[in-house]
Nucleic acid binder design. Structure first.
Lengths: 255, 255
DNA sequence: ACATATTGTGTTATCTTGTAACAAGAGATG
DNA sequence: CATCTCTTGTTACAAGATAACACAATATGT
């Protein structure tokens, strides 16, 4: 089975994001366009390309272009999460040791990280893999058990790790916040870890989407009094604002 | 900005691999098909779908179907690496605590892991994220500094982590092996860590592609005498075989 | 409030592209 | 040598995509 044409067609197809049928026709005038269509069909079955009107798009490029947008906008409320991230990012100063919580809100911080020497610790391997692309950041992953639910690390080893790490600034995104229960999480080992981080961090910045304010989950990992900044996307109600004022928590509403 | 239709359209589009325009027309008879086309166009720009003849294909499904083949076939010598992995996998027993080194060779182990309760520690976040999809495995990530070069973890914290972890079986893939220098690596902190792992592991299985035998890199992390098994894809020369026999190393050639 | 942009939508006519079906040629296989 | 399968070419037809314009609804600025 030797199809020199097919091999060449494949090379062309995978070499760039889109190849038009026209292009192939010009490149291979010795065969009919139907044959080239069939070639495209063949490589679609192989999973190399995906047939679109007028030609084919290379899978390789589809996935890489996906990844770019993936890290920035995934899930719900992306726009407001970006705003929150941007507002929170102003507290990042050169040379600091940071902690980044797992989750989509904190993930949005990545594009806003200033180009200065930084050290970041995180419990989120996906976030770490994104972060390592920025070459001004030393990326540390907190060891521990990887949870299947939210792909974040926690457990005994992670607490041990944190106990030996100095953190200037911790960016945490809680699953819920209410005046009654404080900042809460849905997972025991995780809340245990977050709790340890809050204790060690010089400054705790809570990044919380307005939709999570008023909600509470089973495990409280810290009280309002333990944090320094609260960044959200909508002005919280006066009761919460009062409480923040009493506790000395600066409230930042991202616009 | 409230487009109830668009939200619904999106839900339909991303819920399955392919949605035909017809389908959307039936679901939304109140708008023209042109509008639905434009919706598809919109979500194509968003990166949610990709427009094909007759409708749209969901990105989510495209990438997941891609990933299947991605984790298995990536990089050079994939076929022999799979063979090595398969041969090495027979040593995995239920209930054991394993260590998986970073790298493509060890990555190939994943499909061959038996469906029994296992605990795996790894320095490779990508490997961990693959592994966590298998729900019989407890996945632990060794904490530490994430290297930009090979996306693996090492450093002080990782050694600390290993010192507190019991490992029955360690699967390591060295960058080089020669009789003169033993098993070598190109990175100091990594070789330091690998060295610590070899010391702690009950059984060390070296997975090494034939192309790396005879090569040596700057840092030796262990000698032939420290390992129990050596899995490779081609019969090594007699000098190496002799040395293995003297050191009590079982040589497995994957076929 | 008014006038002006902007945006979303519908309609049509036209054109491009894809498909299906059949036929012919080239190797392979008995 | 007959037959089978696989690839390719041809044609006619159907389906889908696009562009251009028109109109309404909503935003925006004064």
């Amino acid at each position: 089975m030797n199809y020199p044409r097919k091999v060449l067609v494949r090379e062309i197809l995978v070499s760039k994001p889109f190849t038009s049928l026209k292009e192939l026709e010009e490149r291979f005038p010795e065969v009919s366009s139907m044959t080239l269509r069939r070639d495209i069909e063949f490589f679609e079955r192989q999973g190399d390309v995906i047939k679109v009107r007028g030609g084919a798009r290379s899978m390789k490029f589809i996935t890489t272009s996906m990844e770019e947008s993936f890290s920035t906008r995934s899930g719900a409320y992306t726009f407001s999460k970006q705003k929150i991230a941007q507002a929170a990012s102003v507290f990042i100063e050169s040379g600091r040791s940071l902690f980044f919580d797992s989750g989509s809100t904190v993930m949005q911080l990545i594009p806003f990280i200033p180009k200065t020497r930084l050290s970041v610790n995180t419990t989120d391997p996906n976030l770490a893999l994104e972060l390592v692309k920025k070459d001004n950041v030393m990326v540390h992953i907190v060891g521990g058990l990887l949870s299947r639910d939210n792909l974040s690390l926690s457990g005994m080893q992670s607490i041990d790790y944190i106990s030996k790490t100095n953190i200037d600034l911790a960016f945490i995104s809680p699953s819920g916040f209410s005046l009654k229960y404080g900042f809460t999480s849905g997972n025991y080992t995780e809340s245990e870890l977050k709790s340890a981080i809050v204790k060690k961090a010089g400054c705790v910045i809570m990044m919380i989407h307005s939709s999570k304010i008023g909600k509470s989950l089973p495990y409280t990992f810290c009280e309002l009094g333990n944090v320094q900044k609260l960044v959200t996307d909508q002005m919280p109600d006066s009761e919460i604002l009062d409480a923040c004022r009493r506790c000395g928590v600066e409230v930042i509403v991202a616009k």
